[in-house]
Amino acid sequence: MINVQDIRDTARDLLAKGEVRAVIGYRRGSRGMLAEPAFITSPEQADELVWDPTCFHNLSLYLVHDRKFLDHIRKNPGAPVAIIAKGCDARSIVVLLQEHYFKREDVYIIGVSCEGTGVLDERKLAPHLNGAQASNAAFDGDDFVFTTAEGEKRLQAREVMADRCLECRIPFPKEHNAVFGEDKAGRQMEAPFAALTRFEEQGSGERWDFWSHHFDRCIRCFACRSVCPMCYCDECVVDSITFPVTTETTAEDKANRVRWIERSAVRSENITYLMTRAMHLAGRCTDCGECERACPVNVPIRLLNNKMEREAREQFGFEPGASIGGPSLVASFLDSDPGDFIR
């Protein structure tokens, strides 16, 4: 069981000694029980930090933001930044390190084990509260405990945990500078890729019915892309910023431009966007599940990424975020890679 005070003490200590320039963690937000990302720079703020089942966010996104948007950090990183990372988050950091997005010494990983549980899926919680609002959520062994106006509500974590956490194989941040909580590998409550396996039991026609329905529903708010630490490209293929239109631009110029994906949120364009994204995440996605959590219309994006993850594992023996020095999935190969499908 993790004592949040230990996390706070570590953060305070690191900041007080000047060993890190900031700590990226979680704090209580202004919306009921939900935690939100916190960026603290002075030791006094350390007491704001929280650790509870609503700490969903994969904060490694903000390591990317620092590099991408803050010129002075890019040019002179100075002291490292500390970050609180769950197992999946730490694996994302490993992928970023593998891709040389920043250096290992630029980040101080305060690992937190998910131990016997994981994070909450808000959508699963609502039916248990009968319309009541929770003002606090806490870990307690195998349970989550929620505070509502009507009193305390204790639920078995597995009833309301995110699917990805139920299926998680590695709920422990192996890459870390400091770590809290026990490594409870092998505690998984569902088989790895359980949801994917269930889905794949359907025939091709049913799978298309399912996906075409969801591809129609995407509103292209790009929350999945924006929340993903792996979607760090300076220019995404769906954006039009590479195509300046000047007074000199003729209709023909416009017509002849390569527009991979149109702005219209219609099935054909949404498919191209979501499939391309899934491909770009193959071997990089660590199943933090943020894309699916952020999606305002509940498109089951995680299934696509899961599919790629399982193919990578089964066909190529590849595990995303396993080692900093290892090769990346699509920039490497083995002589033994399958080739039977090729004529």
Partner: peptide
């Protein structure tokens, strides 16, 4: 913390 997505406006 803003991630620059379109949820709020859409």
């Amino acid at each position: 913390a803003c991630i620059g997505c379109g949820i709020c406006t859409f």
